[in-house]
Amino acid sequence: MAGGPMVIGEWADDTTARRSWRDWVGLYGSDEKVVIRLTQEAADSEHVLLAWEQGRAVEAGSDGGHQSGS
């Protein structure tokens, strides 16, 4: 939710980052207001790798993403 509380974490290892994302989805994902994103930062950009919004996984893409059936 825009303007709501935010938690940010940084991991050097991709496996740890993805496991943490799944853990956070398990802990907080049942609240439809929660948005959980795993992003990769480059020099001047940020790429969304995984996203959880409105109680479901969202596929990241160049069009901003669309909701998956999972």
Rank of each mutant, 00 (worst) to 15 (best):
G4K: 09
G29M: 05
T15C: 01
I8H: 12
E59D: 10
L27A: 08
H47C: 08
A43L: 10
I36N: 03
H66C: 08
L38K: 04
G69T: 04
S45P: 01
P5W: 15
E10G: 11
W11M: 12
S20V: 04
R19P: 01
G3S: 08
A57H: 13
G55N: 07
V58A: 05
A51E: 14
G3L: 03
G65R: 07
D63E: 09
G4E: 13
V35R: 14
I8Q: 11
W24S: 13
A2I: 10
S45K: 13
G26V: 06
G4N: 08
L38C: 02
E32N: 15
E59W: 00
I36E: 01
W11K: 13
S30M: 10
D13W: 05
A43D: 02
L50H: 14
S45D: 12
A2P: 11
E46Y: 01
G26Y: 02
W11T: 06
S68D: 01
W24D: 07
G64K: 01
S62A: 14
W11N: 12
Q40E: 03
H66L: 11
A42L: 13
D23I: 11
D31K: 09
H47S: 07
R19D: 04
E32T: 14
D14W: 04
Y28Q: 09
T15P: 00
V25M: 01
G9F: 05
V34R: 15
G65I: 04
R18T: 06
A51H: 06
G29E: 04
R19A: 15
S70L: 06
A60H: 06
D44Q: 07
R18W: 00
V25F: 08
Q67P: 09
T15S: 14
E41Y: 01
M1I: 09
Q67C: 02
Q40C: 09
H47D: 00
E46L: 12
W21S: 06
D31N: 15
G55K: 05
G69V: 07
A12E: 14
A43T: 05
A17Q: 11
K33G: 10
W52S: 04
G64T: 00
L49W: 07
G4P: 00
G4D: 14
A51S: 15
D14E: 13
I36H: 00
D31E: 08
R56K: 12
A43Y: 07
G65L: 07
S20D: 08
M1D: 13
H47E: 08
G9P: 00
I36V: 07
G61Q: 03
G29L: 04
R18Y: 06
